[in-house]
C-alpha cells in the first residue's frame, strides 16, 4: 500500500510493541522504506489507546486522528479467525489518500477512541516495569508485575498476550486460544478493537 500511495503525500509509520531483538528479524526481513520504530515501553499504546496488534490509526495532515484504533490486517492470512478482509481497509485507505474520503464521520471518531481507565493505565505501567526487569535479567522480580498488569486489564492483549514471550509462554499456544475463547465468551470486551459496533457503523456509513 505504501508503494502505491507513498507518492501522494502519505506515509506509513510502523510501531513495534515489542522487544528490540524480537522485532529485529521482522524489520530486517521486510526492509521497509517507511519509518519503523520500536516501542519497548508501549508508550504509543498508552498515548493512543492501543490494546492489540495489528492496529491502525489514521492521522491527517493537521495531526488529527481521523480513524480510531482498529484491527486492520495487512493481508487475509487470519481472515477466518478475525472475520475481517484486508481489502476493505485497503479500499478505505485509497479513498482517503486519493480523494480525502473518510469511512467514519469525524464526530463519531471520538466515540470509538479507547479512553483508558485508571486500572488500564496502571496495568500498562506494571507491564512496563515487568518488561524492564525481564530485560535486566530479573524474571523473578518481573513476574508479579506481569500478573498484576493482567489482573488490572484482563482484556488488553498488549498486556496479556504481549507478556507471554517475556514470561516463557507461547503467544501462539493453547493458553492464547483459551484467552481468545474467554474473551469471546465475555462478549469481546474492550474498547473498539474487535468491536463489531465500529465495523457495523463503518459499513453503514459507506
Amino acid at each position: 500500500m505504501y508503494a502505491e500511495l507513498g507518492e501522494l503525500g502519505f506515509t506509513v509509520i510502523a510501531i513495534a510493541l515489542d522487544e528490540v531483538e524480537a522485532a529485529r528479524e521482522w524489520i530486517e526481513a521486510a526492509n521497509p522504506t517507511y519509518p519503523c520504530v520500536i516501542d519497548v515501553d508501549h508508550r504509543v499504546a498508552e498515548q493512543y489507546g492501543i490494546i492489540n496488534v495489528p492496529t491502525a490509526i489514521w492521522i491527517d495532515e493537521d495531526d488529527r486522528i481521523v480513524r480510531p484504533p482498529d484491527m486492520t490486517p495487512v493481508n487475509d492470512l487470519f481472515k477466518d479467525f478475525t472475520g475481517i478482509e484486508s481489502e476493505v481497509h485497503h479500499n478505505q485507505l485509497r479513498a482517503w489518500v486519493r480523494d480525502g474520503e473518510l469511512p467514519l464521520s469525524l464526530d463519531r471518531v471520538a466515540e470509538f477512541q479507547n479512553q483508558p481507565s485508571a486500572n488500564d493505565q496502571l496495568a500498562r505501567l506494571h507491564r512496563r516495569v515487568g518488561a524492564w526487569l525481564h530485560r535486566a535479567g530479573h524474571d523473578e522480580a518481573a513476574a508479579p508485575h506481569f500478573e498484576r498488569a493482567q489482573t488490572l486489564a484482563p482484556w488488553d492483549w498488549t498486556v496479556h498476550r504481549g507478556a507471554m514471550p517475556l514470561t516463557g509462554r507461547d503467544p501462539f499456544g493453547p493458553e492464547f486460544f483459551d484467552y481468545v475463547k474467554n474473551w469471546n465468551e465475555a462478549g469481546a470486551p474492550g474498547y473498539s478493537w474487535g468491536n463489531s459496533a465500529l465495523r457495523r457503523d463503518l459499513a453503514t456509513e459507506e
Binding site: 509509520i13 513495534a16 528479524e25 491502525a56 495532515e61 504481549g162
Partner: peptide, 17 residues
C-alpha cells in the same frame, strides 16, 4: 511523529507475538 509534517499518516502497531 512531528518530523513527518503535513502528510496523511497511518500508524500501524504490530508485534512478533
Amino acid at each position: 511523529l512531528s518530523s513527518v509534517g503535513r502528510k496523511k499518516k497511518v500508524l500501524i502497531a504490530w508485534a512478533s507475538w
